[in-house]
Design a protein around this nucleic acid. Structure first.
Lengths: 166, 166
DNA sequence: AAAAATAGTTAATATAGTTAACTAATTTTT
DNA sequence: AAAAATTAGTTAACTATATTAACTATTTTT
């Protein structure tokens, strides 16, 4: 007979701490992956956004017809536009992305991956999927679907709440 | 009859993105709470560690007999000791914590909350628990226990893996 | 046509992190 | 017991990531 599993003093707090901890731990692992390609996890995330990764929550909520522009990246990353300019300059210098002027609105610059950027991303994708499989394939699809539902309900609730604070 | 729920292209990737997104969203909310008390979420987390919050994963894995010292904080926060010195200086300046020399080992400085620090933490705790209740009480205890188990297994796996990389 | 809003950049600054070199205390080795 | 190694913490120099405010150029609204 299995021992009764430990129930922490405050279960709600424990859920939140675990979410934050896993996020940080996964990012730490991500840094190991990206370091050898000379980029950061955040820069990787930008490349994934530009590649239109269908699993990114921002892209699920804001489906794109045209390539992303800096303003949308700022929204997706939840940072200032000025900061996005800096981040993009790093990727431009590394020749991983390039800008295309939008001909309908000359203020806008659309961002796209260079062949080099696509190649780098492809290599990282392979490692990421392999690792995610090792990490998560022991759980059932149903269980993972429950987790996703749980997490996305929490995200939506907090985002709605944050919106109403202004 | 309910519609079949959406299954993303890559479920594993979706789990990870949701974990990271919820972590960031919760932290953003946390900043709203802490801002009015003149501290950051990270500083808050240090105060919680010093208060020995039983839900913090580091404290569950490393139960403390004596008050924490800077070296242990660095371990708990996964940052360098030099960085912890900086962070503690901010909290010392704000009179939220104080240092006590360990009389068994004169190199060590034990860190404790001042009455002011305890008071601030108490106010934040009230808001945190209230918000967590609104956010999470719609889910069953069993469901939350499953989430915690899922997340902690992932954390342990990645941490084990990261350890073996050195 | 004028005013307001939007997209992006630049400059100045803040914060959070790093590594390397250092002091002081303790522990281990010889 | 002395020498060497380790540990705890600080300081200094630096890097990365973020901010706000002021600016240009373009588009939209009034």
């Amino acid at each position: 007979m299995r021992a009764k599993s430990f129930i922490p003093v405050n279960q709600n707090a424990s859920v939140i701490f675990h979410v934050i901890k896993l996020s940080e731990t996964w990012k730490k692992y991500g840094e190991c992956l990206t370091r050898e390609y000379g980029i950061t996890v955040q820069q990787w995330f930008i490349l994934l956004l530009l590649a239109n990764d269908p699993n990114i929550i921002y892209l699920q909520k804001h489906p794109q017809k045209k390539p992303l522009m800096a303003m949308e990246l700022a929204d997706a990353l939840n940072v200032s536009r000025a900061n996005v300019t800096n981040l993009l300059n790093l990727l431009l210098k590394k020749k991983l992305i390039f800008q295309v002027n939008d001909n309908l609105d000359k203020r806008r610059k659309r961002l796209k991956l260079t062949p080099l950027g696509k190649k780098l991303l492809k290599k990282l994708e392979k490692k990421r999927h392999a690792y995610n499989a090792i990490l998560l394939n022991r759980f059932s699809e149903k269980q993972k679907q429950q987790i996703i539902r749980f997490l996305s309900q929490c995200i939506d609730f907090i985002e709605e709440d944050l919106k109403n604070r202004y």
